[in-house]
């Protein structure tokens, strides 16, 4: 699904990712943890193709295709999805219009017929309900004036609607109350299948009780410094990242 080899990336001439390796197979869930400023969001941004996040070395293959040959919209249409750590507010563009434009574009790219308005509305309403947002959120400006938790649920709603192949969730659990956390987890778990993979970036082991990962990685100073099973998350929660500093990080 995703194959990252020796990835180096810079933001504004500052090297953030320093030789990152990661392989994700279809159906797997990988959790990435790591201290603030380690480069977790940078990884998400580089993968999704954000302007200003420059690959300086290494390669990334997404379903055998070089992602750096593709614009952000092509990567999305190929099935990549990044749930933003800080979802963007776009006043004047309604959530509904945004969802429709995005679904239409992705279907078109994949040679699927455009969804008719009635089916789309039905789908949008159902998804909105599934993430416990009132229908009025469909009419509001994209993330405009949404609370932190509402923004995160809106990200999950988009993911559910677009049904991507690779979902990268950047701290989608941060700032969520326990109910919202379960909504997010259910959204992910319902989508889990043998052809879909997830990268879940989080600071809290708590999320991983709901979304049980196959692998847990620690990203520190631009590299994966330790990988393990789900028990690694517990260990990190108990001992903190300092424990790694002394042992693994050269």
């Amino acid at each position: 699904m995703l194959n990252i080899k020796n990835l180096h990336a810079a933001v504004e001439d500052k090297t953030i990712l320093k030789g990152l390796n990661l392989e994700i197979k279809p159906g797997e869930v990988h959790a990435i943890m790591g201290p603030n400023g380690a480069g977790k969001s940078t990884l998400g941004n580089v993968l999704a193709g954000r302007e200003g996040y420059e690959r300086t070395n290494g390669e990334v293959l997404f379903n055998e295709k070089d992602i750096f040959e593709m614009d952000p919209e092509e990567r999305a249409a190929e099935g990549m999805f990044l749930a933003f750590q800080y979802p963007v507010e776009i006043p004047g563009v309604s959530n509904l219009e945004f969802l429709k434009a995005s679904l239409d574009a992705i279907r078109k790219y994949n040679n699927q017929p455009e969804l008719d308005a009635v089916s789309f509305m039905k789908m949008a309403r159902e998804t909105c309900k599934a993430v416990n947002l009132d229908q009025s959120f469909l009419k509001r400006g994209v993330n405009e004036g949404f609370s932190g938790g509402e923004k995160k649920r809106n990200e999950i709603m988009q993911m559910m609607l677009l049904q991507p192949k690779l979902c990268i969730l950047d701290e989608t659990d941060s700032g969520l109350d326990i109910d919202a956390l379960q909504v997010v987890a259910k959204g992910v778990n319902d989508l889990r299948d043998s052809n879909r993979s997830f990268v879940v970036v989080t600071h809290y082991q708590r999320l991983l009780d709901y979304i049980v990962p196959d692998y847990v990685h620690v990203l520190a100073d631009g590299k994966i410094v330790k990988s393990g099973g789900k028990e690694l998350a517990h260990e990190l929660e108990d001992k903190g990242y300092g424990w790694l500093d002394n042992n693994e990080v050269a």
């Binding site: 302007e51 952000p72 999805f81 963007v88 945004f98 434009a101 995005s102 574009a105």
Partner: peptide, 16 residues
């Protein structure tokens, strides 16, 4: 540009 990235990261072509 942030809003542009958000929209394009959802598959929406730049012009749209």
């Amino acid at each position: 540009s942030t809003a542009m990235f958000y929209l394009t990261s959802r598959g929406i072509p730049k012009e749209k």
